[in-house]
Design a protein around this nucleic acid. Sequence first.
DNA 1: GTTCCGCATGAATCGATAG
DNA 2: ACTATCGATTCATGCGGAA
Lengths: 311, 311
Amino acid sequence: MSTDGLNSSSTVNSRYVGDRPLLKLQTEILLGDCLGKLDRFPDNTFDLIVTSPPYADSRSKTYGGIKPDEYVEWFLPITKELLRVLKPTGTFILNIKEKVVSGERHTYVLELILEMRKQGWLWTEEFIWHKKNCYPGKWPNRFRDAWERCLQFNKNKKFNMYQESVMVPMGNWAETRLKNLSDTDKTRDESKVGSGFGKNISNWLDRDKVYPTNVIHSSTECGNKKHSAAFPKSLPAWFIKLFTQEGDWVLDPFLGSGTTCQVAQELSRNSVGIEISAEYYELALSSLKPLQYKLFEGASEYVVPRTAGNS
Amino acid sequence: MSTDGLNSSSTVNSRYVGDRPLLKLQTEILLGDCLGKLDRFPDNTFDLIVTSPPYADSRSKTYGGIKPDEYVEWFLPITKELLRVLKPTGTFILNIKEKVVSGERHTYVLELILEMRKQGWLWTEEFIWHKKNCYPGKWPNRFRDAWERCLQFNKNKKFNMYQESVMVPMGNWAETRLKNLSDTDKTRDESKVGSGFGKNISNWLDRDKVYPTNVIHSSTECGNKKHSAAFPKSLPAWFIKLFTQEGDWVLDPFLGSGTTCQVAQELSRNSVGIEISAEYYELALSSLKPLQYKLFEGASEYVVPRTAGNS
DNA sequence: GTTCCGCATGAATCGATAG
DNA sequence: ACTATCGATTCATGCGGAA
């Protein structure tokens, strides 16, 4: 994969079954503008693009605070590049939400969908990310905003989807679902059934498979670190498992603190993350697991020290 | 189909406190096309319009199967009339969801929002109705659809909203408070489903309620859910309580089986429902409580018999 | 080593105040 | 008038320290 060396890092993880090498994985984090970094990638490179771009008027320090009225114009050149580098069987997941501007929901997301279809994207589906711990507050004309859109776009009607990977609750998956049962559910069950919420929980546990819907429950990870991730790991994890297999290539053009690449690495997917903010770039680097590091074209000193001390 | 006088019914419910009349409520169900029936209502009549219009290509018998590509064009004249009859402080709740057409989500809802704003509507908010009991099924490239949009439109930035009426128990309320109650207390509460919770728990409720978010669960309002996925009573009930007070006027221009009027009646709101299908019209009539019936322009025999046997 | 309580912290939004 | 900044509001979550 082409790199200019200076502002890129790569992690190669060689896995073995017995003593047979199974996968050679790569995690690449690039510092810079995603348009500038994307043009060196060939067409049809990635199996999944999953990203949470800066919302309008937020992250103003690092992204210059795109105004709502200019958001579509700003984003369309990027989606055009993403369309190019996505494989025909690949999927693009866009996590986004419209701002309230003078009492109204702004329409830039609606317009973006319409414009992206003109570029050739297919708007396959809209998942709802239900955020249980949304921002507090009270206003006379509005409730708290507890959901965001996860828009699914594709190049073709036929695309890769591995439903079994999220249907079969393995490991902490059942645990995650359990944990995300709403409290209103628990209270309702308690008051109506009278035997606590045991019945509801046992329904989840007894089932071998959990059939998901297009509503995803996940909490934003609360800030223990200096830079807390707005993107909880479970969200990209769900889409990565759903739309890729091990060894596939994942791209996040707005990497932020590195969540997508971190999850991709944990799930044995190759990944590329692009981040324009040096501060977030460093943070993303430090979140990678120190497995085995290899450099592409010199400049080792830029890469190796950053990965120490995190596991 | 729409004939004046013949196909309309009205219910007047006089409520008393002691022997003092408190509210004089009216439930009016009209058979006919909603455009034709709406033009006799004066401007600024209704406090709330809540409806679930026929989705594109569904209910083809009654609405001639509106094609997705023609949906916006079909709906815009109606929204223009709704804008006229809505009070300046009123709210329009539109429950709608886009169909999948050749593998893609159709864009008629997005286009509808943009066009309605050109008519003068403000797109204040988009509530998500999370349907936990959504249709079963499995497709190779799609999960079950478990949510619908409830779009909130207004005429002005200032509108009536009664947030306290839909407050919900606090998140950790079950763990911290209810835990210490005995099982007999809980089961005793179960029998008093009609008014929500039992007395002893309602004491706690008064102190520990919080405002809901813009994600509505079909379980928000516990009640008899005999009607399946179509339009559960809890959904219009939630919006009627949120945006109207007793004695206010509610309109559903696509009444269907009569849920909105039925709920409005139960919540002591005046209501008008319009339904073009004779079959659904009869169903809606029969769902009204047999309180006291009055006719507008004769033709009593069309109305009275239908309401017997339901309570 | 559990369980429990206190506390800081958010992809927010409104309304008022200031330039 | 129109934009920019600030204070007030509010609650689910996870952490650390305490019982």
